[in-house]
């Protein structure tokens, strides 16, 4: 039975290399490596990453991409990946609500997946219908923290 926990099947077929998650993983690794260099870390032990739900990143693909693309500096690093719920606030009536991707069609979901701001074309305030809203939480991909070892530590 295919359950939500079996997302791995999605990227085994047709081709994991086609996935947008790879581009985001590449960006996270480049950023983390740069921060580590600036902080003088020779070994990175943990990278904590947040995935905002608005973009509907597939965690399994993203994790797989991180482990495949990582350089030597990340050899022993643990990637802690957490999801953050997407909440939206209407700028017209101040109503706040949680983004639910299941209310959208597949094309619309895919468009938001690539460029989250496209949500403004397809999502409306659940109270007044306005598409002038703010993404309060859960947009994009970002690094929460990095842990590592300095040479003289």
């Amino acid at each position: 039975m295919l359950t939500q926990g079996c997302n791995v099947l999605k990227w085994l077929s047709p081709d994991p290399f086609e996935m947008h998650e790879w581009a985001l993983a590449e960006a996270v690794l480049a950023t983390a490596a740069d921060i580590a260099r600036k902080e003088g870390l020779t070994r990175i032990t943990q990278v904590r990453v947040k995935l905002g739900e608005l973009q509907q990143i597939e965690t399994d693909i993203f994790r797989y991409a991180l482990s495949t693309l990582r350089s030597d500096a990340f050899r022993n690093a643990r990637f802690v990946i957490q999801r953050e719920a997407a909440t939206l606030r209407c700028r017209r009536c101040d109503h706040e609500w949680r983004f639910q991707s299941r209310e959208l069609g597949e094309d619309e979901k895919e468009s938001i997946h690539f460029v989250p701001e496209v949500a403004h074309a397809y999502v409306n305030c659940t109270s007044c219908g306005s598409s002038d809203f703010e993404v309060v939480t859960g947009r994009g991909v970002w690094i929460e923290s990095i842990r590592g070892v300095k040479p003289d530590a």
């Binding site: 938001i112 397809y122 002038d132």
Partner: peptide, 22 residues
């Protein structure tokens, strides 16, 4: 290619985010 015929009302911060993402 993503917004099709729908209006896409974006404020400044949204424009920045979409540009950086693309």
């Amino acid at each position: 290619s993503y917004s099709h015929d729908d209006p896409l009302p974006l404020r400044g911060a949204d424009i920045s985010n979409a540009l950086i993402e693309l």
